[in-house]
Design a protein around this nucleic acid. Sequence first.
DNA 1: ACGTATAGAAACTGTACGGTACTGTTTCCG
DNA 2: CGGAAACAGTACCGTACAGTTTCTATACGT
Lengths: 205, 205
Amino acid sequence: MPDPPSVPRPPGRPVEERPRHAAIEATLDLIAERGIRGLTTNAVAERAGISKATMYRRWRTKEDLLVDAVAALVSEIRVPDTGTLREDARALLGDAVRLYTGTRPAKLIPDLIAEMARNPRVADAVRSGFLAQRRAALRQVLDRARARGELRADRDPELCLDLFGGVIYYRLLVTGGPLDERLADELTDALLDGIAAVTTVNDPM
Amino acid sequence: MPDPPSVPRPPGRPVEERPRHAAIEATLDLIAERGIRGLTTNAVAERAGISKATMYRRWRTKEDLLVDAVAALVSEIRVPDTGTLREDARALLGDAVRLYTGTRPAKLIPDLIAEMARNPRVADAVRSGFLAQRRAALRQVLDRARARGELRADRDPELCLDLFGGVIYYRLLVTGGPLDERLADELTDALLDGIAAVTTVNDPM
DNA sequence: ACGTATAGAAACTGTACGGTACTGTTTCCG
DNA sequence: CGGAAACAGTACCGTACAGTTTCTATACGT
């Protein structure tokens, strides 16, 4: 019990919370709009409506601010539970294509990818924050499906997670291909049933 | 016929080819080693063993050099033709995981991804060069499989291409997950047969 | 009122970079 | 040899940026 219930406030003007939040929002906005190259301390301070001195009181370097901002990047997810894997998958993939078209995360991610490859702190912040959160939702859906016997037992669970994210990110980052409801539908079927024609072994005829 | 067969050489010392090639190689090396941020005109000139004046005689700006260098990025591919889609796919995916572990393209791509998102010229150079070449090989394999009736007819061909690249790039760029022979094998089966347990409709029992 | 510490504004320092200009040297042709 | 143009090397200019400092205003407790 080193802490009495009423913390004795230190003397002087108390630290405000607004500048911290404003700087983080400004950081994410600037990366989304102008890329990591556009993330300058002057631009952050100006956009956040704070002074650089105030920024540097909270973060020792620009990188510290970047890591904190990336860690604050989250997206709310509804975890579907329709009772069938196919409908749950369609819902999750539908959410994903909407998230990755036009939104701030969609614009941020290409820049973060490059930063992650060079900066382990940013890589960790993305993977254990934003990414882990989204993968947890998918893992929950897949676990339920597995319990219902809807998943092949011989598929690596980690690979299954990657299959869902793979095509979305591939189009977002590499090909620039369409991310729409049609993709969500067709991808659901392709992942669940494969692309190979049904062989004679499994042929219902 | 404004051009006589033997081109009259202009006066003065002729332009050498070595500096151009050296600058492009130095550019790709520098991006791979130090990222796009490490790509400075001084560093390129030093690494290439040429002078900046020689560089700027060939490229008006650094961006012009970057676009040329990216366009020169190719990887030789053997197009497999084993007679079955499964073996061809395994071979292509095996080549891919080897290409994307430890090689220069593997180190370049994260940086190029971010650049592509902001720079249409770089995006076009990657997509119509390096990427188009690799997708053409896969397309050839899939077309042959389709002709043999090994592919489901109701799958979008473009989506099929994306499925193969998706997981590889997702691990390379996003999760940092393993890119090895085991992935190539398991991914082949997952893509061809799906991850869903066989339904009663197709159940051979 | 007074002491203390944060806030904003802006000038300042040091450095890195893209691009240019200049010098002297080399390689071609006639 | 002599002219022309490319070459390496390097100094230079303007700009942009990270981070620091200074100043003044403001918000709290006593």
